[in-house]
């Protein structure tokens, strides 16, 4: 595996690979997003208790799940970057952080907009919303730390270390549902043996989760390429790339 991976430790190859992968993710994202959002908004039956307000679930749950997934991606990348001294992995951490932060913000905002008609308040100090808020703080801390360094190599390392420290937070977020008694519904999808959500509602939700996941991939790849360009801007391959672009 290392033999196969080795060429991709070179910036130029990674740039090309990321560029090759990105359209595939994009091709998966756009149709799944359109199908999922139309199905969820117009075709899925209304919830018998929450009426049509439950349709917020089709962005709330995918955003919340993928915010966590983005963090896991960052944690894995940070681990690889620090253990094997792979700078590219540290760049992936920097590339994923803003995407994760935006997803977390979406999850929080939609949670608030869902909470208002359901609980009668925009904000309730419920375990999941609170831990989502803490996740947003952690993301902001990582982004702020990354931007504070002018040397981007050091910035990547520092952000990676902070990401790994923050991993301790993820289990706490996960178990907070158990620890605190809350107003929020328990985990809806993970209970496969006893589905508390109807199939007609579940399918568009899964499609939306898929769409959010692939979009996360697109954005990470895109930002990863930008990071690469910035850091390698004095290398010959970037100069060649810019010259070709300038002519075309």
């Amino acid at each position: 595996m290392w033999k196969w991976l080795h060429p991709y430790a070179k910036a130029e190859h990674s740039y090309a690979l990321a560029g090759k992968l990105m359209p595939w993710f994009l091709v998966l994202t756009i149709p799944s997003f359109i199908i999922g959002i139309v199905w969820g908004l117009a075709f899925a039956p209304a919830d018998y208790q929450q009426g049509d307000s439950f349709r917020i679930i089709y962005i709330h749950v995918p955003a919340a799940m993928m915010a966590m997934a983005a963090y896991s991606t960052m944690a894995i990348a940070a681990f690889i970057g620090l253990v094997w001294q792979l700078r590219l992995a540290e760049m992936a951490v920097a590339a994923a952080a803003p995407v994760g932060a935006i997803y977390t913000f979406i999850a929080l905002f939609t949670g608030a907009a869902w909470g208002k008609p359901m609980w009668g308040a925009w904000w309730v100090w419920d375990a999941r919303l609170t831990s989502e808020l803490i996740l947003l703080f952690v993301y902001m801390g990582i982004i702020a730390l990354y931007n504070a360094f002018s040397d981007k190599v050091l910035a990547g390392r520092a952000a990676s270390i902070l990401t790994l420290v923050g991993v301790i937070n993820l289990p706490i977020i996960h178990f907070s549902v158990v620890w605190w008694n809350t107003l929020h519904q328990g985990a809806t999808i993970t209970k496969f043996e006893q589905p508390s959500i109807a199939t007609e509602m579940l399918i568009p939700l899964l499609i939306m989760i898929f769409s959010f996941a692939t979009f996360l991939g697109v954005m990470i790849l895109y930002r990863f390429r930008s990071e690469l360009l910035q850091r390698e801007q004095h290398r010959a391959w970037v100069i060649k790339l810019v010259q070709i672009k300038g002519r075309g």
């Binding site: 703080f137 902001m140 730390l145 504070a148 050091l154 270390i161 420290v165």
Partner: peptide
Amino acid sequence: AIGVALTVGLRKGGILLSLIMLPF
């Protein structure tokens, strides 16, 4: 101390330190 160690080399580390440490 983790936060301090990360920010000690920065000129304006103080507020950043609280940003990254308080959530944890």
